[in-house]
Write a protein that binds this DNA or RNA. Structure first.
Lengths: 340, 340
DNA sequence: TTGTAGGCGTTATCAT
DNA sequence: ATGATAACGCCTACAA
């Protein structure tokens, strides 16, 4: 069943059928009705390959999600869905493995789907440097700061990672903690980890506290298991911290488990702070204190920026959205009474 | 950059270029080398739309994942990836929202990608009944039992949901619990929930225990929040259970939080058991006792069945894989000493 | 082994 | 408003 068959069935020419199917102007109401009716009756399905082969551009916005496991992205996609629902655009979401090249993938999808714009959920600057030249539609990187990338069609919206990490550590410092261990990601591989680490160092230096990475820092992957493992190593090394900041909630959860297995209570013996603001955190016992990223703000700003670029040719820009401080049960004030 | 350009550049005809690119026979080593080299140099990217438009079938296997949030599926995709990696097939993974029609989506992708077979991760029998007739390649539903569906090209591999739920409840019974609350999904909407509920009832009836759904059962969605909410309702209603079985780990986690907020300790005051075996469960405090689904078994059996159907035309079949019992910290034996 | 040409189903550009 | 027709980029007979 092709549009040719539909043409034969209705007596119209293929051109008219195509126009009717695509809501193009210059189709009589009579023709439109007859054709749509015939299409329904013979439940006609358009051949996407042929359509996309011929089309010069679609009316779709592509969302490339890098890292299926990232819960934050799941929420964000939902927010984006509803933001786009009110427009004339159609959303195409592509989920991919964290370790693949999202820019190369997007370039491929550009040729296939010819989207009007792209939203990258997560991204690695190195990949953009290498492959972004092949993409010429407006793009927004969400979650990562891309201001250092010199592309006129690339914007970014991110949480201030330096500030967020600094705030986490300063929150712990304000509660009287002086020796704070850090569990983070690989600063070489991950742009985000580098910024968050930078924020930690700023907090220590502002408060004139010593920080010995050798003793109190571990760089691992963002996972329960790695957070757990990192904490075990920290404990085994005899590090005498009273608080821990994990650069992601999942690592914080693993760390808490390791602490408990070592006989340490949270927050009585050790305070633990995460970063991300996963919904899960507030269901844990104890509830996980964390610096939360604002999924709604991230989503709404990036959609706004993308649409503005698509529709008005607005120049690229790089924004930061505010984060929240969730002082929950996993942290404790260890200052002596009356010392405040 | 098209194969025409490649032809011009190398001096060969487009037919030869196409054959070289697709590893077809009847291409001289010299031509193949020259063409592949030229393709690399001008980093030629094939036009998927044109290719698929012409193609009658690909060499790909499609994986349709229904429900991105389901952590189990994330693990399973990875397992499937590595199982397929050793074959001559290519994997195409499509993630979709839980509430969309996975069969209609698969039918659409069949027309587009022309896969040799399909793996459904999750699925709703009603959708198959309605739309599966349009699909004629071998398919395997993973996680759900499809034996009641009369399609010759549809197999299924699932955990024995009735047995798993029965086992969960019987485990609690064996520890001395007599009044056990159940938190589950909607038995009308979810095939899986219906089976698990059936398993619960079997456990009660086998042990001649009364079970009053009105008092001790809540059907909600599979989420932290809904598990939390269900437990609050159970507690508010004054139900006097000593144990809870939640039909999914995520609900169990929400339930534990609600218990703690009500001043009940787990497992001292109430035992909690989940189902799924999420990695997260073993990082919680207390570690979550659960009936675990075997992701590896599910993945390897379904791939084996699919390949057998694709390659040898093996008839459809419906298998069940064993589940595990993880007696972890969230459950407690409440029988008096020496009574055993 | 290689070249040539027709067609896949659609859209877009012309006429009409 | 509608119809005819030329691409789109590729694959695949078939011919050479």
């Amino acid at each position: 069943m092709t549009i040719k068959d539909l043409a034969a069935k209705t007596g119209y020419a293929v051109g008219t059928v195509s126009r009717a199917l695509n809501d193009h102007p210059n189709v009589s109401e009579k023709a439109r009705k007859a054709i749509l009716q015939a299409a329904r009756e013979s439940d006609f399905q358009i051949n996407v390959n042929a359509k996309q082969l011929k089309q010069t551009h679609s009316n779709s916005i592509l969302v490339v999600v890098k890292g299926i496991r990232n819960e934050l992205f799941g929420e964000m996609v939902e927010d984006i869905q509803s933001l786009i629902a009110g427009t004339r655009y159609q959303l195409v979401v592509d989920y991919m493995d964290e370790d693949l090249n999202e820019v190369a993938r997007a370039a491929q999808l550009c040729r296939e789907k010819k989207p009007l714009g792209i939203l990258f959920l997560g991204g690695t600057n190195a990949n953009f440097l290498q492959d972004f030249a092949a993409i010429d539609v407006p793009c927004v990187v969400v979650t990562n700061d891309a201001s250092s990338l010199p592309f006129p069609n690339l914007s970014s919206v991110s949480t201030d990672d330096v500030g967020a990490a600094r705030c986490a550590v300063e929150t712990l410092i304000s509660l009287g903690h002086r020796r704070i261990a850090i569990i983070g990601g690989d600063c070489v591989v991950s742009d985000t980890s580098r910024l968050r680490y930078e924020g930690c160092l700023q907090a220590f230096s502002r408060h004139k506290l010593d920080f010995d990475p050798e003793q109190d820092f571990r760089d691992v992957h963002y996972s329960y298991q790695d957070g757990y493992q990192a904490m075990r190593e920290l404990l085994a090394a005899g590090s005498q911290f009273t608080a821990v900041f994990a650069m992601a909630d999942v690592m914080a959860i693993g760390a808490i488990r390791a602490l408990r297995e070592a006989g340490k209570r949270v927050p009585e013996d050790v305070s633990v702070m995460g970063l991300d603001g996963l919904p899960l955190g507030s269901f844990l016992v104890p509830q996980l204190a964390t610096i939360s990223q604002s999924v709604e703000a991230l989503a709404s700003r990036s959609v706004a920026i993308l649409l503005d670029a698509m529709e008005n040719g607005a120049p690229s820009c790089h924004e930061t959205v505010p984060f929240g401080i969730e002082k929950r049960e996993s942290i404790r004030d260890i200052r002596k009474q009356g010392e405040k």
